[in-house]
Amino acid sequence: MLSLLRWVIARDLTLAIRRRADVLTTLFFFVIVVTLFPLGVGPEMDTLRRMGAGVLWVAALLASMLSLGRLFAADHLDGTLEQFLLIPQSLSVVVLGKIIAHWLVSGVPLVLMAPIVGLQYGLSPTALLALLASLLLGTPILSAIGAIGAALTLGLRGGGVLVSLLVLPLYVPVLIFGAGAVDAAVSGLGAEAHLSLLGALLLLALVLSPWTAAVALRISIE
């Protein structure tokens, strides 16, 4: 099972490296959205400092959702997804592998970029640290929940818009605890409570969503 997991992750990472443009698009989308907000609300540093965590988290949510289309659609088109469904081992393991690869490709770059764009919002080092930690715990949840949405909308007309409708409401808790962690750290309450809740959500998502997405894939491929 572990070797299957390793193979799937290795394959998806190889594919991502050979299609670097896709990865960079997501990252630039994130940076551009974050940059647009001050242009909309004005450059007062105090306002921006208060909004910073929320804006960065919403941008991360959108960026992660934008890349969900890649999760299964390409494999569906060229027939490799069917081969996944026919393996003697569990499909959930394959899906877990694809979730991890999706996170490595579209989540980790955002996490690494966040402290840099966070400086645009005048976030303090404490806030940046909390932001980094919350994104590190939260973005894998986005990939895991998103996989269910991507599997359900596989091959549908207008699937890209539909997936946002299905997935964004489910992202609400991640957004609340993620942005809340930064606020709590800034206000001196400490981010531990938020981060542990995010960790609990991450465990829950990693246990339940690969299996659910596998069920959804079998339904969609029929």
Partner: peptide
């Protein structure tokens, strides 16, 4: 769900190959 898939090979209409590999 394990015995049968291990005994069977399916090659569908799409080739099941990644263009990048």
């Amino acid at each position: 769900r394990d015995v049968y898939p291990a005994a069977m090979m399916y090659i569908g209409h799409p080739n099941g190959l990644k263009d990048e590999l």
